[in-house]
Design a protein around this nucleic acid. Structure first.
Lengths: 231, 231
DNA sequence: CGGCGTTTTGAGATATCTCAATGGGAGTGG
DNA sequence: CCACTCCCATTGAGATATCTCAAAACGCCG
């Protein structure tokens, strides 16, 4: 219940899988309102999921990373848009097959239920972040979440595959505000910005304190045991 | 997909129902983190669902109205808190029974899946409202949603069972800002505030225009047609 | 090495927040 | 039934964070 990634499902080998597709940078995977044919499991790369407003503004709800499943939900049209950030490989899961499975296999239906429940939790955490925290705190939370998800690499060196504009649209601020927030975190020696796609955490403790003391000893996902996320 | 109510499930007579309980104004129904024993279907009254931050601030995610089911989700602890606004009667649905049913009955599991999917959509709409709209627009959206849900009564006379503080915590603003926003809507002749719990819509069209034309005749949006998937 | 899109920095405008005081409605007691 | 309180809501004025518009700096790609 702590995941902020979209639709995570355990990678089961018995998943109804079809082909794998390759998407290039900024390529649409699906668009809100479109008839739903597939759900996708990310194999490599990053995907951003968002809504676009009539006036062109955008709200990003999550950045999908490898293993995340995107495009779930009971509706038969996509309720979000998705596009690749950099090159991404996605495994296609036929929506029709998924439905058929879920209609007859209660266990599978419950898996979907659990996945959407996690997404809901993550979205609620997003609401909390957006309404209860100032811009620097939001940036800190974002960086920590990113660091937590990039396992395997050093947790103190964060890769940012997405642009400043993407981050800003996720955090609900303008890119200028984001830039200033990053600058502020640098000035207070919490992080170090190298180039436009790498950030080094220099003071993990301080960053966590700023983010609201979300220490969360981890014990990854699914574990109910604890309450709440960050704040 | 436009619902902003929490966990709506069609009132099926074959629901595993237990007793009905009565809650008085401001009485807790359940608290975030608590072990989950029941889900509840609201029979009468209003319920607010929220999270409380360590610093005491609060974010309300939805106001439950009759027929809404609250307390759903795959986790075995509540991820939100709920309390009654005014007197409310809730039908208790044993969580254990729900789980048992869902584990063996795919159709039922899918019903839960659909319910949570709706909640997720509503929460995403909340995110959009909070980040993309100014205070007066948010108030307009709130009033219109409330009007839409109070069927049976005149849609132009809205009852507000909740306090200003509740509304503000839902809309992500301070009560002073809410009050000023309401005053502004009055001054522009869109609504009329009578007392503290009744609002009359005087210019529905204008209010909808302000709300951002979220009329959602559905259809369209961006056409997927091209750009899509393959390569 | 040079061009160009992205990012950063700057300065002023604006919306919302904060603190403080006034106003009003609902319930209570006389 | 009316007056009194008290809590909630409204209004006011100044502080603050974020936005906006603009320009400079940077890094990336050819």
């Amino acid at each position: 219940m702590k995941k902020d990634s979209t639709g995570f499902l355990p990678s089961q080998s018995d998943w109804p899988s079809d082909l794998t597709r390759r998407y290039h940078d900024r390529q649409h995977i699906f668009v809100e309102g479109e008839h739903k044919r597939w759900a996708y499991q990310i194999e490599t790369g990053t995907v951003c999921l968002y809504k676009t407003m009539p006036d062109g503004k955008r709200q990003i709800f999550t950045f999908g990373v490898p293993n995340d499943v995107i495009g779930l939900g009971a509706a038969d049209v996509y309720t979000l848009s998705a596009e690749a950030i950099g090159t991404a490989h996605l495994k296609c899961l036929s929506f029709k097959t998924l439905n058929k499975l879920a209609a007859t296999n209660a266990k599978f239906a419950l898996t979907l239920y659990g996945a959407i429940s996690s997404e809901l939790e993550a979205t609620r955490d997003l609401v909390v972040m957006l309404t209860q925290h100032g811009s620097r705190e939001r940036v800190a939370i974002f960086l920590l979440n990113l660091a937590r998800r990039s396992i395997g690499k050093e947790p103190y060196l964060i890769a940012l595959p997405m642009s400043r504009s993407d981050i800003a649209d996720f955090l609900g601020m303008k890119i200028e505000t984001l830039s200033r927030s990053l600058a502020a975190l640098c000035k207070t020696a919490l992080i170090d910005v190298s180039g436009r796609s790498k950030i080094q955490i220099k003071d993990m403790e301080g960053l966590q304190r700023l983010a609201g003391l979300t220490i969360r000893p981890a014990t990854s996902a699914q574990d109910p045991g604890d309450t709440e996320g960050f704040e």
